[in-house]
Amino acid sequence: MSTVEIRNLHKYFGKLEVLKGIDFKVASGQVVCVIGPSGSGKSTLLRCVNLLEQPTSGQVFVDGIELTHPDVDIDAARRRLGMVFQQFNLFPHLTVLRNVTIAQERVLKRNRSEAERVARENLERVGLAEKADSYPAQLSGGQQQRVAIARALAMSPSLMLFDEPTSALDPELVGDVLKVMRTLAQEGMTMLVVTHEMGFAREVADRVVFMDGGVIVEDGPPKQVIGDPRHERTRAFLSRVLNPDQVS
């Protein structure tokens, strides 16, 4: 069964058509990386999956439930979807522990001790158990992003969405975050990852989707899409990303 299915998705910002009819599925347990130049619509696609952006037309299904249906309780549906942002978006006025417990208590109605137990488990998972009582501002970017992953995981999502999770990080901090994501993938988490990390995509992804100009240009196993792209646009993009020093 597919965890995510998108049918003929269109998204306009004003008159600008950002997504021009996307059809696309993520099977349960799959890791799918979406790559493409900036402005290609890949982040918008990701944000349409949990309806942070309202699609102009088309359908989004998660676990067989149509999120775009007017009768769907979107808040309930979003609980199945963990989201990790480029800018982390931790809650700066709350401790790390509280960042991870607040939605469990307010949304899942877990009691405080249960929520804290789950929170500590997930902080352990991302290697930050000892930072539970710190505030986000006291952590490095990489640590903040790992807390953000723990915060999403604490809601027991069936799918994790990553929106360029390492793009705002200093290069030396990228590795820790990717390591956590790699472990998650190995544990069988379904993941949809917008990224520029080609090494990660090649190694971890079951499928790589290349987007350009609001359409999916190429979709297949990483060996094919990154290793042996069929389309000229994919090739041009990859050569720019993989050899940034070369002047084309």
Binding site: L52, A76, R78, M83, N89, A103
Partner: peptide, 10 residues
């Protein structure tokens, strides 16, 4: 901040 809170189901 609002987006993060909403995406946690609030």
């Amino acid at each position: 901040q609002m987006e993060a809170a909403r995406s946690l189901g609030m």
